[in-house]
Design a protein around this nucleic acid. Structure first.
Lengths: 347, 347
DNA sequence: GCGCGTTACTGACGCGCGTTAGTCCACCGA
DNA sequence: TCGGTGGACTAACGCGCGTCAGTAACGCGC
């Protein structure tokens, strides 16, 4: 009862060795020769006492924390609506665990506060998700040599980043629509264009169109903002001012909102309007009709970011830009435009 | 360049005081009298040097880590499909931050590994989400006096828990259907019945029926399992063996899958079958038709769990069971059964 | 002038561990 | 016998901080 947590000294006493030896054994120091018999004695003593090393003490002595910080710079609504966050977190945690580290999460970290995680040695490195250009403390941290990896892109910053190739992924989605015969393809961005990912996906839309010989028409483009409501608003704006037979919505969540707008305007999907989303959230396959979309490897993104960060912490070489592959998932929300199908039926 | 991180000794030297005084000032020790002038000198020295206390050292000396651990015991699919996780995490982090703590997340923690977080003093307390009865290390931890709070319920365990009142929430949803005139109401659980929440929601369904004078009919009940696919399967099973004019699906995600099954069976929602979901995920309002569901205060759940845990850590009294209120959100997926409407039209 | 309380500090210990620079001993070749 | 070598350890320092027990200076009443 009165006895408190055992320390490594208790283990040492029980095993009949010094504390140093206990430390060597329990840390699996291969550069130190210790006979198997002694090793076993230490292990046995530790387990009999129920010994668990005191993490802060170990962090203090070793000079590192074995903690990866995940900083979410997105707004509350973004975090709430981010269906892939949990998967990304899982991937990150899996990479961390493989290296004996843990993950500390800092959601909605106000600018200029999360750097403390690093400067106070609470974390060995940081993964910054949803970075914004207007974030001086980020470049400051990187400039001071702290290990930082970006989840998402932020051009012009000399910090390793892990992301998907938004441009080509979006272009692929739009090419799919083009190949079906669509010519007037609207676009709703996933976020305001100040967000890099939104900008890049729009860029992919534009490039695919131009490669297909179609001039970019900005009246076909509307900005969304993270949630389904914004998708609905954007679609209504588009419906009110122009015509199109397909739309590329750079987020599944917004695509659902946009589909609602189409339905209320008596446009059927895909008969009147084809819709392509982005992200492949778990529910996308159960939309009506099932949503054609771009699959984003959420788990792998987290895992890759974690590995990159661990590499940076260990001073191993890290690619400045890691791009993970995406995949177009064709489901029921896309079809050739009616005119084409008519022609085909006639011929 | 060569100069390394400043320590509190550097601050002390620069301010012309002792390290002890620096510690008192920077920790806002109100029980120690220090003239404002000295106080300011210390603050100035600290900020000029860019001093940040070394967290592990502070944790070691103070004997506490100011870290709350969030342990997710759910399976990978559950985590991936849990649309409210991000909100809960936000709430938890907000409670933690208010108390000067941070949140460490341990997803998919294998049984018997997450207790290390506590035993090694890496966290001051644990919030265990999705606890299972068959988890000896959980009761062990609680028995050893470690601060643990459950997110979700686990009867028969002497550990504080924060949850919603699943029974009455489900009963409320079913009463809504009863009040519309439905008599044959099917039920799809959100998870296998070994999960407490699933069991409780089914219990609420049952109680509401019996209070309405309707005998419980187990052929109207089917077990789901976290994802939309299981909701679709369950609905198909029900459609294949019985008839009903409404269904209570204890999860929005499964409700979407079930709706797909209904559509393919040429049953219209709500004309032929009314559907009530559970959770009020962000997308529920954009389903077709918009889903009537039970709103779950995700953010507040996380916040309440965090506060309860902080109370336990500080040895303040904590209610054994905190139940947060839910709210029935009536949308377009529920309506009176056709027979009733016909009657009403005739009269 | 002395005792005593109050204010404003400080010296030094300890938190539990990692690690460096050794020590001691057995054994081996010469 | 002795120098030398390698194996098997250990003593002791330091990581950066919180905090207890103390001290010096000062004012004040008598």
């Amino acid at each position: 009862m009165g006895r408190s947590r055992p320390t490594s000294a208790d283990v040492a006493a029980r095993a009949g060795v010094s504390r140093t030896t206990v430390s060597f054994v329990l840390n699996y120091r291969t550069d130190i020769q210790i006979p198997d018999e002694t090793r076993q004695r230490v292990f046995r003593a530790a387990s009999e006492l129920g010994y668990h090393p005191h993490t802060p003490a170990r962090q203090l002595a070793a000079g590192r924390s074995n903690v990866l910080g995940l900083v979410l710079r997105q707004s509350a609504e973004q975090v709430a609506g981010d269906a892939t966050l949990a998967e990304t977190l899982r991937g990150l945690a899996s990479a961390a665990r493989a290296a004996g580290s843990r993950v500390m999460v800092e959601p909605l970290a106000p600018e200029g506060t999360y750097d403390r995680l690093l400067r106070s040695h609470q974390a060995d490195g940081l993964i910054v998700s949803g970075p914004r250009t207007d974030d001086p403390s980020l470049s400051q941290l990187a400039g001071d040599g702290f290990p930082v990896v970006l989840q998402g892109s932020l051009p012009g910053l000399d910090v390793p980043s892990v992301d998907i190739d938004n441009v080509s992924a979006a272009a692929g989605a739009v090419r799919h629509l083009l190949s079906l015969g669509h010519r007037r393809i609207a676009c709703i961005t996933n976020a305001p264009l100040t967000y890099t990912a939104a900008h890049e996906r729009l860029q992919g839309y534009r490039e695919a169109l131009e490669a297909g010989g179609i001039a970019y028409d900005e009246t076909l483009v509307e900005e969304g903002a993270f949630d389904a409501a914004s998708g609905e608003r954007a679609a209504n704006a588009l419906l009110g001012r122009t015509t199109f037979t397909a739309m590329f919505v750079a987020s599944d969540v917004l695509a659902l909102g946009a589909s609602n707008a189409l339905r209320e305007a008596n446009r059927r999907v895909p008969d009147d309007v084809s819709v392509v989303g982005f992200d492949d959230i778990a529910l996308a396959a159960y939309f009506d009709p099932p949503l054609t979309t771009v699959r984003l490897p959420a788990f792998e993104l987290g895992q890759a970011a974690g590995r990159a960060l661990l590499d940076r912490i260990a001073d191993r070489a890290v690619a400045l830009r890691t791009l993970l592959p995406t995949e177009l998932i064709v489901r029921g929300s896309t079809a050739p435009p009616v005119t084409h199908r008519d022609r085909r039926t006639i011929s």
